[in-house]
């Protein structure tokens, strides 16, 4: 009897060991997710909470009334990702190609340094920097480039600036990791075989650093599309994003089922981009 139990235990060792994790996922991930899913198909009662009957109304509204919010969110997230890439890719190469270890380590340290300060504080700092009488406007005015202060705050532009600033390390670090693995003599090999700078970059350097680029883009795009603090503080009405839409539904007398539906759609978009990522890396591995 005891021996039989032991054998059974040994046989299902892996399953037993993963029980705590499975339990955790079930309680804190799958259950809430299912709740949100169910909620998203419910109607709104007068206090803003979900109630029966089930309906597609929330999804309808997400795809009609709030479609512009999704479009502009995807826009902002995409532009932020591209700008991060355009800054981060050369930066990773710049750091990698420094001769001295000290300079390289210092540069990497500077990339990570902002994480040491509270995110909210840093975002508020951008309010000051981009403000009517902030350093950017003062400089522009004193140089005579503009006649009156430029309105940066509460625009999509300010949101993009804030996001690029916040997420740049997530772009630089994975790219740096793949640049680190890149064998620079391949540049010479390509040139030796008749490739000019342009062809060397597109056919030899970029393909081999692509995993870092893709990882960086995913790591920036996913948090960017769901961001709500940055657009809240810097975007105003113009920079209103999905994140803000969802928060608003859950706070006060909003529309919880609508928020749930928007969350599901957002999650769908994120999963779609992850799928792209997995497909891409699978192709690289082969």
């Amino acid at each position: 009897m005891v021996a039989g139990l032991k054998r059974a235990l040994r046989k299902h060792n892996a399953f037993i060991l993963s029980l705590p994790a499975l339990f955790w996922l079930l309680v804190f991930f799958i259950t809430p997710l299912l709740l949100v899913l169910v909620l998203s198909f419910m109607s709104r009662d007068i206090t803003g909470r979900g109630t029966l009957p089930f309906t597609f109304e929330q999804y309808e509204r997400v795809f009609t009334t709030f479609r512009p919010v999704f479009v502009s969110s995807i826009n902002i997230a995409l532009i932020s990702t591209v700008v991060c890439l355009l800054i981060g890719y050369p930066l990773a190469f710049y750091i990698k190609t420094r001769r001295s270890d000290a300079v390289r380590n210092l540069a990497l340290f500077l990339v990570i340094l902002p994480f040491w300060t509270n995110f909210l504080v840093r975002t508020y700092a951008w309010r000051v920097i981009l403000g009517q009488s902030g350093p950017v406007n003062t400089t522009l005015l004193s140089l005579g480039l503009v006649d009156e202060p430029v309105i940066f705050l509460n625009t999509q532009f300010a949101v993009i600036v804030g996001m690029v600033y916040t997420f740049l390390p997530f772009m630089v670090l994975p790219i740096y990791a793949s640049v680190e693995r890149f064998d620079f003599r391949q540049v010479e090999a390509a040139r030796d075989l008749g490739a000019n700078d342009w062809h060397t970059f597109w056919r030899v350097v970029l393909p081999q650093t692509m995993p870092g680029v893709v990882a960086g883009c995913i790591l920036v795009f996913i948090p960017a599309i769901g961001a709500f603090i940055t657009p809240d503080l810097l975007g105003g009405r113009d920079g209103f994003m999905i994140g803000n839409l969802i928060t608003r539904q859950y706070k006060g007398t909003g529309n919880v089922p609508l928020g749930a539906a928007a969350s599901m759609v957002l999650m769908g978009a994120v999963m779609l981009s992850l799928l792209v990522y997995i497909r891409f890396t699978a192709r690289q591995e082969r």
């Binding site: 064998d183 003599r185 030796d192 008749g194 490739a195």
Partner: peptide, 29 residues
């Protein structure tokens, strides 16, 4: 520049392109 010279090099550790097949490596030039 190197890419306009009538010479080709066999590198010390070969510097083959890891993301290409053998055929693609040879066809690159």
């Amino acid at each position: 520049p190197a890419f306009h010279r009538p010479v080709n090099t066999v590198f010390q550790d070969y510097a083959l392109f890891p993301h290409m097949t053998v055929m693609q490596n040879v066809m690159f030039g």
